[in-house]
Every structure is written in structure tokens, then in C-alpha cells.
Nucleic acid binder design. Sequence first.
DNA 1: ATACGGAGTGAAAACGATTGCAAACGGGAG
DNA 2: CTCCCGTTTGCAATCGTTTTCACTCCGTAT
Lengths: 333, 333
Amino acid sequence: MVTLKDVAAACGVSPATVSRALNATGDNPSRHVRYIRHVADNMGYRPNAAARALKTNRSDNIGILYEDVMQHEYFSSLIEGLRLGAEKRGYDLTFLARHFDGEGKVYVAEAEYRSLDGIIVVQADYASSRILSLTGCGLPTVVVDNRLEGCGTVFSDNAAGMEKLVRHVASLGHRRVAFIGGDEGSVTSLRLGGFYKGCAESGIRAAPEWIFHAHYRDPQSCFGALDSILMGDVKPTCILFPDDFCCIGAISALAARGIRVPEDISIAGYDGVEMGRLMKPALTTYRQDSDGMADLAIQMLTDAISRGEQSVSGIATAEGSLVEGETVRMIGG
Amino acid sequence: MVTLKDVAAACGVSPATVSRALNATGDNPSRHVRYIRHVADNMGYRPNAAARALKTNRSDNIGILYEDVMQHEYFSSLIEGLRLGAEKRGYDLTFLARHFDGEGKVYVAEAEYRSLDGIIVVQADYASSRILSLTGCGLPTVVVDNRLEGCGTVFSDNAAGMEKLVRHVASLGHRRVAFIGGDEGSVTSLRLGGFYKGCAESGIRAAPEWIFHAHYRDPQSCFGALDSILMGDVKPTCILFPDDFCCIGAISALAARGIRVPEDISIAGYDGVEMGRLMKPALTTYRQDSDGMADLAIQMLTDAISRGEQSVSGIATAEGSLVEGETVRMIGG
DNA sequence: ATACGGAGTGAAAACGATTGCAAACGGGAG
DNA sequence: CTCCCGTTTGCAATCGTTTTCACTCCGTAT
């Protein structure tokens, strides 16, 4: 392993000079600096992250914290986006391991231990108490799709997206629209607000009997809601699902009852998964901009880091886009 | 931040003693050692990873390297499995960033820079030249579903799995079976071998005109193959797809032609994604044991690390399981 | 009683980088 | 030629651990 000292010897200068030459940020480096850099390159010098972190307390490393979300395509693409964003800005990404202590899982200690520069929290459930303990830790933190005291936040446009979806559905003539989701403490509860607003603006009555609770990406509770809907006297012409996964699954559940989509009933999902584009009829859904969210999150975080701040403030929202598929059909006015 | 020295002062001993007390591995620690540990705990002492790494050249940190696979449910659950396995054994997981140099992406340098203890490679494509440069780097490396000189390997039971699938299909009476996949340099080429073997053992003629090339998880090439199959004079009774994603997509493509699954044609996928269980008819497929593979990989790697070896040898295979769905129907003998 | 071996401890030297401080240097003005 | 001021450089300390080496202490064998 070639060290600063080796490069210094090769250049006939002191290690301090080499360090400065390599870290200098000026726009037009002097001949001497260029020479040192050239030699360092040639020798294959790479700084030692541990030594640097020890001295500076910085690691160019961001911790990422999530729970049980990897299987969701939306989240895994979000995480991939985080990685790309971090890479672009010269940071690495480390999974924050959950080392146990007496009372629960400890993330902060881990982050400190590794001298991480910041933390990104990706979590489907709101306000996990384990996460809450992060907020006071003096490390800049950005939370995705969640609101946490003292942390920066990046939201998907949950309310606005659902609103757009409702309008779209309304524009195709639907007046009896059911909503599945709105689970307390999940993003779908934010969307419920958008649903109400969209209904109000489109002159649709948001009938309480057509609003059903279900968890995000939980087919079980979702199909339960579907059952209730189908057992009602008056049936909706369109059902909005909490996520694409459940929505696609529902097509089969409906087919098993002899109900065709979209001929007999229209449906729409939420997320914008790849399968939705592939299938026939193509899924009508709202595509969350996971790449945009990821990049915003990393940007907020790295900005705060490079300003040397201990916390991140501010809220940003990434706008998604309506995906007009074929699962919502036009119905007679 | 509380350091070794602080603990030492509080205990009235030297830092060296504290270090030894905390790192001692003996089964029954002496009273004195227990006391030091107690004090350290109480003071909230956490070792500094950077200092430790600097001194020992170990980081309890494993690098993970992959390309463009995050969107695949199989891969993201594999990565989640890796994380869990690493966590279980006291390691963290860091994404290996791809810093560029003149000729391509450089992973090794990054791994060295962070003094990573080992590397796990997850990659759909065989023999990427970028990866190859890893092998000589003196870091223990385990490759998933791939064979690379000087690296440990964990395989999914590609051939055996496909063989089982073929037998299952044969046992339901199918004699005309088409195979899509077998792409050079991808895992599906291994499965092609299993296909031949399964056919041979089941007395099925593996007809070359029913073997079609397609990339893994590439609907485009897959549907092209499907077209060819459907245009043939004699049609197969069952089609085996390279992955569940394409297979599920194919159901729609078939439906668009008025072909029903499984009444008119039987199909099976490969991977075992969640959606397959949810849909109706439930997807017949072969579920790869991604958790098992991940755990094997981490175990091989951490074993080598703790033995202080510079490379990993050995090949392990994780056995998957046949998922008998409803997309392959029994046909008349 | 003396010598010896083992266990435990402390002092101090690393590991490889950054950085405050002071000295050396270089260029322009007088 | 000298002086002054701004820039560059080197020295040395430091970050928090681990680890070697020498030493002490104590129990046991001779």
C-alpha cells in the first residue's frame, strides 16, 4: 500500500505538502501541485479512509436506514437511486446495521461508531420509536416520505398525486369511486386527503361507505376491503388501490369472480411498477418519482454536510406523473 | 465522544489494559475484566471504527458489488438477505461505489480505500471485465451465481431447479415443451442444461425448434420468442419462461391473442416472486432460495475473513423449491 | 531460600492522514 | 541592496486504537 509518505519521498517534499497538494481545491493548480498529483497517480496512491476519518471525523459515507421494504419495487428503486446520487457526489452508502442493546435496536451508536457523515431514513411506517431516537444525535438526517422533528424531509407528492388520479378518473366519466387505503400512519393516509380534494373538485361525492382501510402493500387487508365493496348494494365504477402490487393482484381476484377489468369495473393502482406497463390491459396508476426523491434526499443531506451543519431542515417534494393505462375505461356520461 | 483513554482513567488502569479487557475472547472473564467492561458500558463507550481500522486493517465491513439489478425482486431480496446475514455476524454492508478511472470503473481501489474485509459480487451478467479485475486484489471475494477465478461461489441450483420444473410439467402430461432463455453468459444458459436433462429423463424430445433465446428479465426478447413459438405449425402445450416477470407479462400478451392460461396453453416462470402467489391462476414457478444463498455467501466470506485468508475457495449451492401453481394444467395422456 | 515460568500490566510505538505554527522563500518597492 | 509582505513549506502534534516489549508480581518447583 502506497502512503502519503511514499509519495512525499518520491517527490522530495514532506507529507504535509503532498496532503495539501492533493486536497487543494483551487481552480488552476500550480505546476508543482500538478506534478505532485501526477506522481501520486502514477504510484497508484489512494488515501486511507480510516486514517482520514480518524483525523477529520468525516468519512464520506452516508448511512442508510430502512425496515422491511426491500421487496417493494418502489423502495428498492428508491435505494438504488440513493446509491447513484451518493456516488455522484463522492459518497458511499452503508447499511446501518441494527445492533441490539437492552431496550431495542440502536442505530445512532452504529452511525457514530463508523463516523458516518449523515443518515437517510427510508421507512414505510411513520414514527417508529426506534427511529425517533435518531433525531437528537447530532448527525444530519433526511427522512423520505415521513416527517420527523429536526430532520430534513423528502416527500412524494402523495396528496397531489392522488388528486390527479381522481381527476383523471373523473374525466373519464366515473362518479362512483371507491378508495382503499388511508391507513393511519402510512403514506396512504396522506393520499386520502388528495382523494377528498380530487373528489370535491370533480364534483364526486366521496362516499364514506366506499372508503376502506387497508395497509400499504398488504393484499390480505386489501382484498378484504375489495370483498366489502363487492358485497354492497350499489357498486362503484372504479376502485383506487393503495399500491400497484395489490391492484394487479386484485385483477385476478376479480377475474375469479367473473368480473373483468376494465369492462365491468375500472381500477387504478399507485406507484408505477414495471409490471404495470407490461401487462394487458396496461395498469392505470400514478408513478412516484423515486429517482427524483432519492436525488433530492441525497442533495439535501450532502449540502448540509458540506456546510458542516448538524441537522437538516427543509422539506422537498418530488412530483410524480400520471400513467394513463387501460384499466380505467371511459364510461357513459 | 468517550474514548479508551477516558475509560482507562475511570478504571485507574492504562488504555492498553482496557483494550485487552474489551477484546478478550475468553469464555470466563476475570472479575477485573468484567469490571472494566461494566464501566465502559456505563460510560457509553463505543470503539472508533476508523482508529481500529487504521491500526488493524480490518473494518468489519463487507463491500457489495452489483450492476443494474436492484429492480429485480429476486436480486433485491438477495441483497436484503446479504444484509441480514452480515448483520447477524457483526459486519456492515457498504455499496462499492464505482469511481471512474481512465479505462473503466474501479472497484478494487474503493475496497482498498475503505479497508473492506471482503467483497460480495452480485451480478446477472457473467464475466464482466470490470469485475474480473477484482480477482487479483487480495481481498476475499464471493460471487453469487457466477464463476470467477479465485473467488468463492454460491450458486442457485439452476440446472437442478429447471430439471425439477421440467419433470413436474412432464408429470402433468406435457410432451411438447418450449424453453425460452439459454442466453449465453447468463444463468438461464445453466438452466438450459437442466432442461435437456429433465427432458431426457422424462422422455420428452427437446426440440431445437422450441428452444428460443432471450435475455433474463427482458420482456422484449422474450415476447419475440413467444411470437415465434405461436407462429409455428405445431404448438407446444407448455412454455417455460426465463423469469417470472416475463412470464406474468406473457399471460397478458397471450390473452391479447385470445389464448388463455392454462386452458389453451400452460406456462411456468422462474424465480418465485410474490406476485406469482397472489395472482389467479397462481403462477407455477421455481422459487430460488435467495435468503439461503445470501446466508451461504456471507458465511463463506466471513469464515475466510476470520481465518485471515486472502481468498475464498469452494462452491456452495442453495436449493430452491418447486412452486406448484395453476398455470400448468394436467393434459390428457 | 532461590530460581523459574506464567499471567497480567504499562509505556510507547505504531497505523496514515491532517493541520496549527513558525520558518523559509520569493517578488516587488523603496 | 534591503525591507516588507504574502505565499509556500516543513515540523511535529494529533486523532483513538492495537500491539510489542519489558517489567512486575506471584505461585511453584528445586
